[in-house]
Design a protein around this nucleic acid. Structure first.
Lengths: 193, 193
DNA sequence: ATAATTTCTTCAACCAGTTTAATTTTTTTG
DNA sequence: CAAAAAAATTAAACTGGTTGAAGAAATTAT
């Protein structure tokens, strides 16, 4: 089943009884997104936490010049949502859309709160999720400060293995913070050595 | 009293009874750091959450080339610590030191856990703290991608008002991700217009 | 106070990454 | 499978930000 992936993901951090698993499953909604379909748009409130069963999402902004800047990618086994908007109920600054046909499992905020009440250890799990997201961001800030474009690209390849093969290169450039043209030059240079 | 600042900070998010305040105060330790003194070094575990009563700290890394890159500043009324190391018990990648003589209020992890047990709503407060730190980081990643150096500098001035007057300019440059020389040129250019 | 150290400024040469635009390759669509 | 659209490559001119070096200003230590 598809559900196995999400269960494995959760049981890396907390152990669940069979009934607790059943309750959790009963609160999940599955959803499909076609490639290019939006899960969230700027100005909307992010109402769900989304676990990716299959496919790939990106979260991004559009700057004044109309350029897209990608804050995160999420593939199978990852959670994707604007946690800020989800937690606070504020309008999101971000878009989230699908780079491939994608299947999700979603849990809404009221259902999550119900879950916390019935199975408090889920609170622990979602706190760990936030912590991990925090750490990943801190790492990225630091790398943007201390790495060259080339180092960032090489790090990207190892951090998101295979992803480069699945998505357009211009998306990689929009994540790394330089132009597609420059990425193309970089790749050429690296392939020569 | 110095304690008023930390109480105000907390009561922005949760309301406390007198006894709860007293318990909280009893778990705080105050500490002074002379300018240039370290609160945390790379490789150490961050054992406390630190509230700044007076002064200024910075959290930074040193890259292979020996350059310092500042991940955050923290002034009066802010919390500073390596949350990752604090939560997980892992060795920190960061240094934290004082840019001015600084006075802190500290709470250790065991005491924080005691506090959570006795006054569960503190759990809420520290979760909000993590959320806010998360949001601030997300904003910074996005700005590093979509803003020019000049925009980032102007944004810095409004986000950390007066801080530029308190610390050496080279620290500002190490935060913004460019050289002190370039910052000097930027300031000259901006003062002319 | 004076000396020593750190920080800031200025300038010129330089380099990493951008821009624009033309061409080719790949992917998507009917 | 053909046509259209999107993405990738290449090259040349350009710009934002760096480097190194030298002097001036400010801070710190004695």
């Amino acid at each position: 089943m598809e559900d196995e992936l999400i269960l494995k993901n959760i049981e890396r951090h907390i152990h669940l009884e069979k009934e607790e698993v059943n309750l959790f499953y009963s609160l999940l909604t599955s959803r499909s997104l076609k490639k290019k379909a939006y899960l969230l748009r700027q100005g909307e409130v992010c109402k769900t936490e989304n676990f990716i069963v299959k496919g790939c999402l990106r979260m991004y902004t559009i700057d004044e010049a109309g350029l897209e800047h990608i804050v995160m990618f999420a593939v199978e086994g990852w959670w994707a949502s604007d946690l800020f908007s989800f937690f606070t109920g504020a309008a999101s600054d971000y878009y989230i859309d699908a780079l491939e046909d994608t299947e999700l499992l979603q849990i809404s905020k009221p259902d999550l709160e119900l879950l916390y009440e019935r199975v408090p250890k889920f609170e622990r799990f979602f706190r760990i999720l936030l912590q991990n997201a925090f750490i990943a961001q801190q790492r990225r800030i630091n790398q943007n400060l201390s790495f060259t474009a080339e180092q960032r690209y090489l790090d990207f390849i190892t951090k998101y293995p295979q992803l480069e093969q699945r998505i357009p290169q211009k998306q990689v450039a929009a994540y790394l913070g330089f132009t597609p043209v420059f990425l193309s030059m970089l790749r050429k240079k690296l392939s020569r050595q």
